[in-house]
């Protein structure tokens, strides 16, 4: 949780006038934003607004049509950038977990370290156990994804991303596929990461998390950023009526079982 990052510092992620269309439908219409190191940025907005597409563009899982993205001093969108190298530095957590079904929890975490980072197997296992410890799942190390609950799967997925020592973590609706009673354990892990200083971009409908953990909330609608600012500003003093309407609606919808989760 950084208080006022010095503006002289180069942002870890910088996005400039990003455009992306799917089959003629414009999803992103000129998005620009910057994320400083250790920032926790929550992206909110109605579904179909391009929030997930924006995240996927950052590690080029979706290829933008126009615009630039920088990771530190590397232009991700430049034609000769080695995208595999860029992706190693960006952790990603998916709504559907996407754990590797044929591997144990432990090996889900080690496989990136051994195959991509070329770490020794023993070293990777030790580090993987440590990452599983961070998400509270050491005792599940030997289990396969099908033997884990949704919340446990997502925590393993977070450990898998952490194992690569990412500079930024992208969370694409990490709790949307979970039963309400399992959301809390995932949010707790994310909150812990935020306090440890991880740079995070989070697409979520969890307004409690947005309000308490984020440094900045970005409100997107119809492919553009409508408004962004610290949570206090967006929640209590938004500049636009649309922002207020959306926050009111979403809090009404998702906010009800907030007490259960924390």
């Amino acid at each position: 949780m950084s208080e006022m990052t010095p503006s002289s510092k180069l942002p870890i992620v910088r996005i400039e006038s990003l455009y992306k269309a799917y089959q003629g439908t414009e999803v992103l219409k000129g998005i620009s934003m910057a994320v400083q190191e250790q920032d926790v940025v929550v992206i909110i907005g109605p579904s179909g607004t391009g929030k997930s597409t924006l995240l996927r563009c950052i590690n080029l899982l979706a290829i933008p049509d126009k615009g630039q993205i920088w990771l530190d001093d590397i232009e991700v969108t430049a034609p000769h950038t080695n995208i595999d190298k860029v992706r190693q530095r960006i952790g990603m957590v998916f709504q559907e977990f996407n754990l590797f079904n044929h591997l144990t929890a432990l090996n889900n975490v080690t496989i990136g370290m051994t195959r991509v980072l070329k770490m020794k197997s023993k070293e990777a296992q030790e580090k993987a156990m440590w990452e599983l410890e961070r998400v509270g799942l050491v005792d599940k190390a030997a289990l396969f994804p099908a033997q884990l609950s949704g919340g446990q799967k997502q925590r393993v997925a977070i450990a898998r991303a952490l194992g690569m020592n990412p500079e930024v973590m992208l969370f694409d609706e990490p709790t949307s596929a979970l039963d309400p009673e399992l959301i809390g354990e995932v949010l707790n892990v994310m909150q812990k990461l935020a306090y440890e200083g991880m740079t995070m971009l989070v697409v979520t409908h969890e307004m409690g998390f947005a309000r308490e953990v984020s440094d900045r909330i970005v409100f997107m609608e119809k492919g553009v950023i409508v408004e962004e600012g610290p949570p206090k500003q967006l929640f209590y003093n938004p500049k636009f009526e649309r922002t207020r309407d959306f926050l009111w609606k979403i809090t009404e919808l998702y906010g009800k079982d907030e007490e259960k989760k924390s």
Partner: peptide, 16 residues
């Protein structure tokens, strides 16, 4: 397709 996406997101090449 999620398995391929997750693998690529880790930095694996398509072949890996």
């Amino acid at each position: 397709s999620g398995q391929m996406t997750a693998a690529r997101a880790l930095g694996m090449t398509k072949m890996q």
